[in-house]
Design a protein around this nucleic acid. Structure first.
Length: 496
RNA sequence: GUCCCCAUCGUCUAGCCCGGCCUAGGACACCUGCCUUUCACGCAGGCGACGGGGGUUCGAAUCCCCCUGGGGACGCCA
């Protein structure tokens, strides 16, 4: 429409870790800002003194950065509409509160929380919705004075006229709600702190927010806020309410569905680009049906016009699949970099700078990893065939293979030749097996199965032509968990 | 309970705004087959949906109404 510059904001409350629902909101805001060449603002809504912590602020910033979102204005970025923490904006709120009071658009309410709780309970028992009856709205000056003298600290309420508030939501279309669904709501608490709906409007207006993109759980707050915009004479932003992300049981995604914090997903080994990708697909779809994107590709295609109205159920399997897709696109170096923390923790790679031999060997693990990982933590099980060798825990299938008629002949022959050869050399293993085939006249399963079991204690696993060189080369390295070479493995099998 | 929002395969969705091209397309998951010394990967197939009822129309997944179902909000939380 007009040429108002696009300014959007993500406004988390720092009361814990960022969770997937919030992240989706952050993502859509960020994508929209970047796509439109607008400004992305981060604002910390820390008015809940009880639950807000600095540690949480830090983790939120860290999570956002990890996910690839940068903010143009906000904590650590500055900007000319600050401060960007609500607790630092209290002066602003009281100024605007006073304005409403002076203009007669708001009034002091002396009802105590206990009184209101009782009324709320009574209404509930009667099966009626509780709406503040406006008790204090028509207090005479004398009555007011009495309460002041009793030392009752008043809250500030907005005078709300009965009417229908209608607006057009970018994703939902026309929405209308009657004001008697909420009545005269509280702007400022007796202790002088602003309520959410009040602070949001003041902040969004002062920060010149053009599009308010947030979760659908805020849809019913919107009319309250619109009334305030009107009371102040502030221009209305455009609203876009994103549908909820649901858990498998169909209710709003929350801790009840397990740990859904970004943190937990990072820990499990999800890549930020996969998380961004999956979240984008929860409610948005590409016009050409493309499903695998990194952040910048997403940015090039995103639009609010293709956001779905229906709620979406979070499906971890789809996220794992996307993670795999992103893993497949990584170079050996990148793969090593992202899996290293997991391999180090499992004592499979040394910490710190890797010497050239170890580094080269670690890079050679890439094909093995790429083929057997969905999430980064799978790097450990993917490298089990290299690091774990335990004849005692062999399963029945493997034992049966060793009991085959030709098994020990084959292994014996393999062992003899392996001692003479350098199995770390590409092709050496293959040549060696071919020789055995000719000499012993054993082929196929009778040939390969015993060798596999002797080398890995398992009936199935990675291709031996790929595995054996890794084993042989790895055995020469000094690793936190030493690798047993092919020869040693065969010898162990015989000694058990 | 009241108000608001929503409703296509098990899940994410395309299609819906501008009815016919839809015997409803894709992806994930699942199943089968192929590839392979095995597993995994990969490849090829398969299973599988317009919640119900009324309209409107020559024609409805698409438009309207009702019902049902689901979700959200009803806080001096954000």
């Amino acid at each position: 429409m007009e040429s108002t510059p696009v300014r959007v904001r993500f406004a988390p409350s720092p009361t814990g870790h960022l969770h997937l629902g919030n992240v989706r909101t952050a993502l859509f805001n960020w994508l929209f800002a970047r796509r439109e060449g607008g400004t992305f603002i981060l604002r910390i809504e820390d008015t809940d003194a009880e639950r807000s912590t600095q540690a949480s602020v830090d983790s939120v910033l860290e999570d956002l950065r990890w996910l690839g979102f940068d903010w143009d204005e906000g904590p650590e970025a500055g900007g000319s509409y600050g401060p960007y923490r609500q607790t630092e904006r209290y002066g602003l709120y009281s100024r605007y509160a006073k304005q409403l009071l002076d203009e007669g658009k708001a009034y002091r309410c002396y009802c105590t929380q206990e009184e209101l709780d009782a009324q709320r309970q009574a209404a509930r028992d009667a099966g009626r919705p509780f709406i503040y009856p406006g008790t204090c709205r028509f207090l005479t000056e004398k009555e007011r004075q009495e309460r002041e003298e009793k030392g009752i600290k008043p809250a500030l309420r907005l005078k709300v006229q009965p009417k229908t508030v209608a607006f057009r939501d970018i994703v939902r279309g026309p929405v209308s709600i009657h004001t008697n669904a909420f009545g005269d709501w509280i702007l400022v608490r007796p202790d002088g702190s602003p309520t959410y709906n009040f602070a949001v409007v003041v902040d969004d207006s002062l920060m010149k927010i053009s599009h308010v993109i947030r979760g659908e759980d805020h849809l019913s707050n919107t009319p309250k806020q619109i009334l305030l915009y009107e009371a102040f004479g502030f221009p209305l932003p455009q609203f876009a309410h994103l549908s909820m992300i649901l858990g498998p049981d169909g209710s709003k995604l929350s801790k009840r569905h397990g740990d859904v914090s970004v943190d937990a997903f990072r820990e499990k080994g999800f890549l930020p680009q996969a998380l961004d990708n999956g979240l984008a697909l929860l409610g948005w779809s590409d016009p050409d049906g493309i499903e695998v994107f990194d952040l910048s590709a997403l940015m090039g295609r995103f639009g609010l016009d293709r956001v779905n109205k229906a709620a979406a159920v979070f499906d971890a399997a789809k996220f794992r699949h996307l993670n795999r897709e992103h893993l497949k696109k990584m170079s050996e170096e990148e793969l090593l970099a992202v899996t290293r923390p997991y391999l180090e923790r499992a004592s499979r790679l040394p910490e710190g700078e890797l010497n050239p031999e170890v580094k080269a060997w670690a890079l050679s693990l890439a094909p093995l990893l790429r083929e057997r990982m969905e999430v980064l933590s799978d790097a450990v099980s993917a490298t089990d065939p290299l690091f774990v060798f335990d004849p005692a825990s062999m399963d029945d299938e493997a034992r049966a293979i060793l009991a085959e008629p030709d098994a020990s002949r084959v292994i014996k022959a393999f062992l003899a030749k392996a001692k003479q050869a350098d199995l770390a050399r590409p092709g050496a293993y293959r040549a060696l097996v071919l020789e055995i085939k000719d000499e012993l006249k054993v082929k196929g399963k009778a040939l390969f199965h015993p060798i596999r079991v002797a080398l890995t204690c398992a009936a199935s696993g990675p291709e031996l032509e790929m595995l054996v060189p890794m084993l042989a080369a790895g055995a020469r390295l000094s690793l936190p968990t030493p690798i047993l070479g092919p020869v040693e493995r065969c010898e162990r099998i015989f000694s058990t």
